[in-house]
């Protein structure tokens, strides 16, 4: 099931959404990236990275938020957490990082059907 850390990331994103109207358009807080970076630096860094996907779910969330903004980025992050380590692992290409196999699932593999890369 969903781990505490993943819920924390979502709570951070939620907080970002709540405070976002008061901030500028290009703010890091608006995109939720600041909270994801905090999670990556201070929680995941201490707890250890175990995500079987590449990019990791937090990195995927950061990229989705940056690429598609807080609303769609959040939805895509939730979708990724739901799929993390299950069927996707056997369906996507393998990527080796530091001697460990990861399922390669970038943001572009999940938005290609509606988003055209510039």
């Amino acid at each position: 099931m969903v781990k505490f850390q993943q819920i924390f990331v979502l709570a951070c994103v939620l907080a970002a959404l709540l405070v976002s109207p008061a901030l500028g358009k290009d703010s890091q807080i608006l995109s939720g990236n600041m909270f994801v970076r905090f999670y990556q630096d201070h929680i995941s860094g201490a707890d250890g990275s175990r995500c079987p996907m590449s990019p990791s779910c937090s990195e995927y969330a950061a990229r989705a938020l940056k690429k598609h903004g807080p609303l769609l980025g959040w939805v895509m992050a939730c979708d990724r957490i739901l799929r993390c380590g299950r069927n996707e692992v056997s369906l996507v290409p393998e990527k080796w990082i530091n001697g460990r196999s990861h399922a390669y699932d970038p943001v572009s593999a999940n938005d290609f059907w509606w988003f055209e890369e510039p």
Partner: peptide, 24 residues
């Protein structure tokens, strides 16, 4: 409300994921 808000994300995410899964 907080749980409901988080749930909205997961619910939307599961719909998005299903449509995306069909395309993939």
């Amino acid at each position: 409300a907080v749980i409901g808000f988080v749930e909205t994300g997961f619910y939307s995410g599961s719909i998005y994921g299903a449509v995306s899964a069909a395309h993939k």
